[in-house]
Amino acid sequence: MAMTVCKLRRVELAGVLLACILLIGLCAPARAISISSDLSASALRVTDTLTLRIVAEWAGSEGLYHFRTPRPVANPHLRLSGQRVGGSSQLDDGAFQSMKSWTFSFVCVEAGTTLVVPPTVIYTNTETDLADSVAGYPMPLTVGSAPPPPFDYKQAGLYLLAFLVVVVVGYLIGRLVVRRQRARRLAAAQRSPEEIAADLLADLEEQKREDRSAQFYTDLEKIILGLWEARLGEGLAGKTPEEAVRVLEQNGVSAEEIEHLQAVLTECHNVRFGGGQVDIQTMDKSLQTVGNWLKPGAGSPGI
């Protein structure tokens, strides 16, 4: 119960204070100068421009009042982009009527709802040397998000053009590569197995080294078996000499050719598995023998 009484007393006290303030306001003398302020809009979007205009009007000559330049109140949603001062005085029925205006331009920089507080206008009556100030009323302002950027047809056109150029260039390069590969395949297909084997033998000749005898004869065996694979169209890789010979026999290869193949493979195996290391001259001889055998119309020299 004590708490309720206490609250009621506080409410009553606040009401009395408010009434006093209103009474003082009503009793104040009317000003000889009229100051107004207005905003160009109450709802904008980020990047839009807002104008705050403050106008002071009075009866009398222009020099009757001296104004201190008002300073805009900082607002996080707005950025000052310019300000302009204007003023005029005219004679009407033998009496001067003057006005002075301050225009502030802002750019909306942040979305949200805010109150725009006009700057306080401070002035001095030059005849009486009395100074006074007038504070404006805060005005609500809603700043919306930035509008989507306008579609840039020119830039889009450039992008499209660049894309088309890339596509066309890619297509042309791809076509060129495919053509070259086809040409290579055709060239390879047109080459006889003997020509291919001869090329491989030439490559092998460059790699011959005494300490690589086993590898040399492994490669030589591969070349020979590859040649016969191409000739017969039947896989021989991984076959032992006896198995390879059997395949050749089944394909009706002449006894002379079979004998030669057997001799080459035996030579290769002797080095590869006989823990052998042969000299360069022996390798040369093997290459020469196989090379002669590849020549068209050559007989079977054997190794």
Binding site: T240, E242, E243, R272, F273, G274, G275
Partner: peptide, 11 residues
């Protein structure tokens, strides 16, 4: 032969 080849193993 004085050495073994894979052919011997396969045989």
């Amino acid at each position: 032969r004085g050495f073994v080849t894979p052919e011997d193993v396969k045989s």
